[in-house]
Amino acid sequence: MKRHTEHVLVLVAVAIVVAIGLGVFVYSGIYNIGADDHHTKPVFAVLQTLRNRSIHVRSDDIKVPNLNDPQLILKGAGQYAAMCTGCHLRPGQENSELRKGMYPQPPNLSKVHVDPRDAFWVIKHGIKMSAMPAWGLDGSHDDLTIWSMVAFIEKLPGMTPAQYKTIVAKAPPDEDMDMDDGGGHSHSHGGAADDKDAHGDADMKGMEMSGEAGHSHDAAAEDGHDRAAATAPAVEAPLSLDGMKPKAAPEAEAVAQAFHTALQHGDRTAALALLAPEATISEGGHTQSRDDYADGHLGEDIAFLKTARITPVSLGSMPMGNTALVGSVSDIQTTIKGKPATLRSTELLNLKKDGKDWKIVSVRWQSAPVSGE
């Protein structure tokens, strides 16, 4: 018992000495806190491990939304250009005046990939004793805005300077995003839009046509492909085709045209072969997986297109590194409740390069009656 007590006293004494020594060290100012005097390798390794483990533990349960949403990516492009390039750079930029003096150096996000869960947590909460701010503090940036930055960061590695410049130039400011204002009015570029503008006609005006354009899936037809409404629910933001140019991504456009042709010719096998396994198909505010679409709605779409007449209006694309957006507008002549009708259809495809081939990872369709119908 006596020996045990002696051991405890020794440990207490050592702890007191260490605490006093640490206090003297901290208060003396001996340690150089300047950013131009780097940590020793062991200290840096410990701090780096502490940081990484802290982030991973807290981000592990975060649920990642669909980061292939084209509008989310475009929103994130504007956010990134406004807030992030000074530290994390952009394609073709090797350094910045601000970044030169920072220690540790922020990652160059145009060259490295970051786990989306970690990226979301860091953007929202920041990192202590670093230049990384908490962008989500006090609700200054909501989760949707932060996810938009994550979505863009996912596409950034491999993006060329020209592609980056094009995307950022077309990125809408926060207040001009195509979002519903809660009162049933959709906005396009800062104002209330009519049917044509809200569905991409004005965005793609003047584009050259090449081949067949996409079709609508919101139409009601007498042949059993019955849809109650021709317009998407108010909660669904209108598709924006800003930045789409004819033949900007010709290989991706060719895949989009092949997809249109397969649907119109009733070739299920060819249509499904162009969809990536993780592909999603969205129309009328509802989203399906590739498998669910194959089991049900695909057959209805093929049946509908057999009786519809499609007139292409415009087709364009936007390359983004190893991904691309392809947008198209078309007019569809069909029959709704026994009466002839013309619908203006907008389609937005998101594609990724899988080896040498392009695959469609998301399909979004919207339509509305042509004005005067």
Rank of each mutant, 00 (worst) to 15 (best):
V57K: 14
A303H: 10
A279T: 01
V43Y: 14
C84S: 05
A303K: 15
H286L: 08
A232F: 06
T231L: 07
D218N: 15
I33K: 14
S188F: 14
A229E: 14
D291Q: 10
A131W: 08
P107F: 06
G243W: 11
L325D: 09
K352E: 15
S130H: 11
V235T: 15
G284D: 08
D138K: 13
D118W: 06
G101R: 05
A192H: 11
G327M: 06
C84W: 06
P65S: 04
G285I: 04
K337P: 00
K359Q: 06
K165R: 05
P106Q: 03
H7D: 08
A303M: 13
G126K: 04
P116F: 03
A171Y: 11
V18D: 06
D180C: 10
K196V: 00
K165I: 02
N68D: 12
Q366I: 01
E212L: 13
N68T: 03
M129C: 10
S59Y: 05
P369D: 03
A228P: 00
G76R: 01
P161W: 12
H199F: 08
L22F: 12
T145H: 05
V363L: 06
K41M: 12
V10K: 11
D194G: 04
L272A: 04
D242S: 12
K155F: 11
P42D: 03
A213D: 09
R290L: 05
G190W: 08
D181K: 10
D242R: 10
D242N: 12
S328E: 05
G321Q: 10
P91K: 05
A303Y: 00
P277Y: 04
S130Y: 11
T269F: 00
I336M: 06
E97R: 11
Y31D: 12
L67S: 02
Q288P: 00
E283F: 14
H217G: 15
T261C: 00
K339G: 01
I281D: 03
V26S: 07
P116N: 02
K75W: 14
T49N: 14
A232I: 09
F304W: 10
I55M: 09
G23M: 06
A171M: 10
E251P: 05
G29L: 07
H199S: 02
H225E: 08
R53M: 13
E6T: 06
A228Q: 13
N66P: 02
A303E: 15
P312I: 03
D37V: 15
A202R: 07
A230N: 14
H113C: 00
F44G: 01
Y80M: 02
D292Y: 00
A169F: 12
S289W: 06
S330T: 02
G266M: 01
W147E: 01
A202M: 00
D61A: 15
H185L: 14
A276G: 03
S314E: 13
M318W: 10
V255A: 05
A45C: 01
V8E: 09
G211N: 09
D61F: 08
A131L: 12
A254Q: 05
K128G: 15
H215G: 09
K2P: 00
S371K: 14
N95M: 08
M318A: 06
L137T: 07
A248S: 08
D301M: 14
Q48D: 15
V370A: 11
T346P: 09
I310S: 04
D69P: 02
K245W: 08
A220M: 11
V12Y: 08
L343E: 07
G190T: 07
M244D: 07
H189S: 13
